Amino acid sequence: MQVRPLEVGELEAAWQLGRLAFGSAPTPAPSALTPLVGLTRYGAFDSAGRLLGKAVDLHHEQWWAGRRVTAADVAGVAVAAEARGRGVARALLRTLLADARERGAAISALYPTVTGPYRSCGWEVAGAQRAVELPTIALPAHRPAPELTVRAGGAADLPAVADLYERVARHRGGLLTRKDVYAPEPSTGLPNGIDGLTLVEQDGQLVGYAAWARGRGYDRHAVFTVEDVFATTAAAARELVGFLAGWRSVTPTVRLWPLAHDAVAAQLPLEHVRVREERIWMHRPVDVTRAVADRGWRTGVRGRVDFALTDADAPWNSGFWRLEVDGGEAHLHRIPDEPALSLDVRGFALLYTGAADAYAVAEAGLLRAGGGADPGPLDLLGSGPRAEAIDYF
């Protein structure tokens, strides 16, 4: 089996393979057959040159406590039906990880259709992207604040919108930096799929926005979809929720993808939330030294812990390590002697993303503590913000 980046002439065959795997539309989008900047498409071929599988490395960045961390986010993994169970996906992912390391990637995330194959390659479930719905009539309306201005936005406002998203996202963990996401469509001046952009300003500065799609109809089936809603103050969040409440007469349901415990979530009647859709996402390190050194850490955390790490599919990560955290910085150093704590790469992912503490990781069999050692000190690896994901890829 040979795994390599796909050539232009092979993109249609890769698209056909994906169409069969995912049941997608019978006609490809132009982008599927065109070389694109910001991603690498891989194919696995047998000795006769037949395409057995494909995968895509998305050259994303993720925010981690104030720092951009280079990511190799994975999408579009598909294997021909006749080739499944023969190690094609593993070969694709191993090559993807090795090449991603060479280009400087530190971490990787993906949305799985099935978890088993990705767990066997070192990814672990770290959270879920949730689409929720609320009855519009349950949203609190309020008297508009005199110090705030609410207006419709357009293409000229997109740089300010991108800046506000960054201010909200940068101190969290796992959110995409959204490079080039806020590009306007020529026909509307707004990003693709967005019908309206509502801005909240204070003293001429943007403090909140909602990007939304009106949907169809005005009966009990109508849904008002809020693709983005972020605010940097409680007053702006109240204004945005009041704006959404104003649609109650024609759209009985509001759908959105909220962040946990942000300014907007604090204004929502969460007791009325219904989960519309939940997509689990998985995480793993590409290069553990970069994963630790490149992200931000809590400035009040200081400590040191030694551990062994096992990573069969990215062997450069395996070995004996010392983690040192101090003053918002952290580093991994190799050490000569085997430590008492031994961590599987999936356990590393759980701790790094804050999805579980060291005791839970040990109970899951992903952390072994020799000689009765306490696993608790490895919580140092999870001392950053709990990771979240709101963008599907």
Rank of each mutant, 00 (worst) to 15 (best):
E201H: 02
G376L: 12
V88G: 09
W123E: 11
V273R: 11
L148R: 04
A13D: 12
W15R: 02
D57L: 10
V288N: 00
V223M: 06
S342T: 13
V125A: 12
P315Y: 03
S47N: 09
A236S: 08
G371Q: 10
A29N: 09
L366K: 05
R170G: 10
G116S: 13
F230G: 03
A81V: 14
L381M: 04
P315C: 07
Y165F: 15
L190H: 03
G116T: 15
E239N: 01
P35F: 05
L199T: 02
V223L: 06
T253K: 09
E239H: 11
G87L: 08
A100M: 07
V292F: 08
V286P: 06
T34M: 07
V301W: 00
L96W: 10
P135D: 06
P144E: 13
G300H: 14
S31V: 11
H333W: 02
L93I: 12
D157R: 09
T70P: 10
A98D: 07
E338A: 15
S383D: 06
P112C: 14
L190R: 09
D374V: 11
S383T: 05
A356L: 04
A308Y: 03
F45R: 02
A155D: 10
T225L: 12
R50Q: 15
D391I: 10
A75N: 03
Y182W: 15
Y118F: 13
Q267Y: 02
A72Y: 04
R103S: 00
G354M: 06
E12M: 03
L134S: 08
V79M: 00
A364F: 02
L244C: 04
D287A: 14
D157P: 08
P144W: 11
V207G: 08
V325I: 14
G53H: 02
E10F: 04
T95D: 11
A65K: 08
R220G: 13
A152L: 15
A349C: 06
A373V: 08
C121D: 13
R214W: 09
R295L: 05
L367A: 01
D337L: 05
L367P: 01
A235S: 05
A25L: 12
T253S: 05
A291M: 06
A373C: 03
W123A: 08
F243R: 14
T27H: 05
D180M: 03
G87K: 05
P269G: 02
R130H: 12
T310G: 09
R41K: 13
A138S: 15
V168E: 12
T289F: 01
R50E: 14
A291L: 06
A314H: 00
L51Q: 10
G204M: 04
